[in-house]
């Protein structure tokens, strides 16, 4: 087996572990933990891109993922803020 094939299989493993972690992983009811698990899966995609020699797609994926993380963290923060307010109003 060649060196690049190990990277490819590492990519598969990371992708599958990240997905299972995000779906049924421990404490996956917490949104942040679910988000971090999806990052593991994205890392697997990075390795697969590397193995298939898609440098441009790899660079764009890393850049887009950084912005995506900002957007999702922002959504989680604001959601939690407003959820708290509605809870206190009901009480």
């Amino acid at each position: 087996m060649e060196y690049i094939e190990y990277l490819l299989y590492l990519g598969y493993v990371l992708l599958i572990i990240g997905t299972i972690g995000a779906i049924v992983g421990p404490k996956s009811n917490d949104r942040f933990i679910r988000l971090l698990n999806t990052e593991v899966a994205t890392f697997g995609v990075c390795f697969i891109f590397l193995a298939y020699d898609e440098a441009l797609a790899l660079m764009t994926l890393i850049a887009v993922n950084a912005i995506l993380c900002l957007i999702l963290v922002r959504a989680i923060i604001l959601n939690a803020e407003y959820e708290e307010e509605t809870d206190t109003k009901i009480k």
């Binding site: 992708l15 990240g18 997905t19 995000a22 779906i23 949104r31 679910r34 988000l35 999806t38 899966a41 994205t42 697997g44 995609v45 697969i48 891109f49 797609a57 994926l61 995506l68 999702l72 959504a75 989680i76 959601n79």
Partner: peptide, 16 residues
């Protein structure tokens, strides 16, 4: 929001 985060993984599958 959980569904939105899981959409990220569907996107990963599409890319792969």
């Amino acid at each position: 929001l959980h569904a939105l985060i899981l959409t990220d993984i569907v996107e990963c599958a599409m890319l792969v």
